[in-house]
Amino acid sequence: MSIARFWRETPRRYNLGGSKCTTCGTTYFPPRAVCPVCPVHRQSIEKMIPFQLSGEGEVLSFTIVHEAAEGFELQVPYVLALVKTVEGPVLTGQIVDAAPEAVAIGLKVRATFRKLREEGKAGVIHYGYKFTPADDPSFATSARGPPVPAPAENPPRDRARA
């Protein structure tokens, strides 16, 4: 993909910038200029507004890629998934930070910002969204931990005054 084309798509690749029909409320990604849902398409033309997806969603379907696309050699095997966002649009994206066997239909994911591709060692680096498990069960999810005790041997003067 050319630098110019990639650059034009920056808003949606970086920020999940889609569009929303203010008449029927349907959201689109990639953004659309006309709403195909509204009965009179023409009337929706002026009613489409930019809309940013939250990046939250769940895996609708997925495949495990063993033969890497160019630039993904270091990541095989990796998961490519269809993600149904909470706003509605379905996005295709890589699932990262999860072993392929940990990915399942219905897995809750959220968008993360990653390197998509490098144009060789000297070329431009392309960035955009991928997905990562929203609540990774393989992590020991310790909460915030105990509240900070005031240092016993040295009580801070400010607190002592308060």
């Binding site: 270091l74 990541q75 990262v96 993360t112 910002f113 990653r114 390197k115 680096i125 960035y127």
Partner: peptide
């Protein structure tokens, strides 16, 4: 990860 660098890590922290 191979797809992380200073730009992606900074973006995650700032978001």
């Amino acid at each position: 990860a191979p797809d992380e660098d200073t730009i992606t890590i900074s973006t995650e922290a700032l978001r």
